[in-house]
Design a protein around this nucleic acid. Sequence first.
DNA 1: GTATTTACGCTACGACAGTTGCGTAAATAC
DNA 2: GTATTTACGCAACTGTCGTAGCGTAAATAC
Lengths: 209, 209
Amino acid sequence: MTTPARRGRPRSEGADGRILQAAHALLTQRGYDRFAIDEVAARAGVAKTTLYRRWPTKDHLLVALVARIQDEVEVADTGDLRRDLTVYLGAVAHGLEGMRRVGREAAAADRSAGVVAELVAAAARHPDVGEAVRALFARRNTLPLRLLDHARERGALPPATSSEVLFDQLAGALYYRLLITGAPIGADYVEELVDQVLTQAATPHPERA
Amino acid sequence: MTTPARRGRPRSEGADGRILQAAHALLTQRGYDRFAIDEVAARAGVAKTTLYRRWPTKDHLLVALVARIQDEVEVADTGDLRRDLTVYLGAVAHGLEGMRRVGREAAAADRSAGVVAELVAAAARHPDVGEAVRALFARRNTLPLRLLDHARERGALPPATSSEVLFDQLAGALYYRLLITGAPIGADYVEELVDQVLTQAATPHPERA
DNA sequence: GTATTTACGCTACGACAGTTGCGTAAATAC
DNA sequence: GTATTTACGCAACTGTCGTAGCGTAAATAC
């Protein structure tokens, strides 16, 4: 992994790290719309132009920050689908509730989707940011998707079940509440959601002749 | 509904309409981040300050626009749940795909969530905008929720089913794909989604002793 | 050594959101 | 009529994102 000895002046050692660190501090303190790029640059001890050479817009910087913050969510595959799903989705929901409070006084505790909404908008504004965000989520979702695959293989889900669609249902419900309805997504809701999906999947009833 | 004869100079007749019309035209032409408030005011023939007296931020104006654009989605309750859901969600998905293209050259056709993403961000930035958006969706969702209630009552869904949670699953899947994964939400996907939810709900299988 | 390449810091600038202050217009209250 | 209240238009201003130009610093190529 040695650098192949580029041509001109090398990039300032550690500037990236100092910028991200300063940006992270300001983001968590004030939120996305109330911190200025100029201030990030000043705190990091670099010129604003240097920052822009690395991240061409504030939106790009945001993705880099979120990708950094986002801690990996553990995925246990114990064979108890209900339990595994509840644990996993509970962790996701908890993480999202945390994102909600980034840059707000805890007292606020309103129903805003916070920084996740900004991330979504950033992805919509710039194609390359969108690509990066989608890659982030694709990577994050591989393990839970595999969890559903295994469940289907061992007969815990109907054989015709599509893991992708089922995952859309589960994750979608959480993001829908976070971003659209603003409804809370606590542990109790996650349990109800998983319960309903799996109970549905196990209870026969009329219709569908 | 006669005006109670207010005190001072009345608001300029029709200014609201002209502003909204001008803003709508610019929004559909260029998209949210590439049209300027100054330009809207100029086209509407009012001073910028007059516009700001009505909508305190660009985000507020956006909600007013979307609320205006959003056509009511028909909800048929024929007794055939699968069909009714497919039709309803198909219309919603079609509307969302339309929102995706607002302000973009048709050629682009990328995976951006477009104006919906901006709406979500606007809701996250201002508490009152969030309130308005949530009211918009609550109103929009009453009929489909009733549809699910009826289905449960006549035994087409398990009696323990929560309409709210089920609706989160369905609508959530669509918005999740629109806003997060960028995956298409065409008629084929809607059919697969409804099919899977209802097939799950009708097919017994092991697990859940 | 000199030439070249790439990054840096700095200053100035353009575009746009949103604000402020002020003079004026259009209504009601008396 | 005059006083009061509310809206309007206009112009100037601030804050912030992002860009452009330029001189300089630190590396490699020869």
